[in-house]
Amino acid sequence: MQIDWLTVAAQIVNFLVLVWLLQRFLYRPITDAMARREERIESRLSEAKAAREEVEAEASRLREQQRALEDSREEVLGEARQEAAALRDRLEDDIREEMEARRATWQDHLQDEREAFAAQLQERAGRQVIEIVGRVLEDYVGSDLASQLAGTFADRLAGLEAEDRDKLKQAAAHAEGPARVQSSVALKTASRSQITRAIHETVAPEIEVEYAEDADLLVGVRLTIGEQTVDWSATRFLNRLETTLDEVIEGSGRHRPRPAPATD
């Protein structure tokens, strides 16, 4: 149990060598490795933090963008709705106008057709009536249609209403020219004198009477004194027939189907 100083010196050296060796092979590598690992972890954490901040900034930016997009979308949609409404109104107006125009055209066309039809009908009916009347008159009255007309006219003149007769008398009193008698056919002297006599008896005894022919009357006689006119003619019947026909066509036209109405 004694101290061997040589061994002590050797152990001191040994210990110092061991300190150096361990410092080189143990402490420094280990502490360096730990420090580097901590550094790496630190840098990774800071990287992750930075990335997260970046992502959050990006996310908030995107949210902002989305909100702006939604706002602008509402705006655009409102504008589009207004435009669509305006366009619809315009189109409706266009269609309505077009329909009105078509309807007017159709009405015009219908009117033309009706008038043409009426004219045609009138013409045919007139011809037919004239033919019939002519044939009847020929068959039953004989060939002297003119004298028959004159007789009939004289009878009618005699059978005038008191009011009408007064009017004629007044007209004759004020008339400057002669009384004018128009007939569809040329009247013979006897017929003329018969009519003249009838006028003198009924209207004015001294009035002059002049005779003329008018093919428009078809069949009949017309007396004109001043502004007053008395006639008995087929034309009057035909005019009355035309009026009747017009009424009939008007009534039937009202019941005809109209064109399809515009969108309403």
């Binding site: 040994n14 060598v17 061991l18 060796l21 361990l22 092979f25 590598p29 280990i30 490795a33």
Partner: peptide, 24 residues
């Protein structure tokens, strides 16, 4: 001294073997 060297050898060689392949 001999056993001290043995201990030193154990320590140094063991450390060397591990720290030669350090992972970070």
């Amino acid at each position: 001294i001999v056993f001290t060297w043995a201990v030193m050898a154990v320590l140094v060689l063991g450390s060397r073997a591990v720290t030669a392949r350090l992972s970070e």
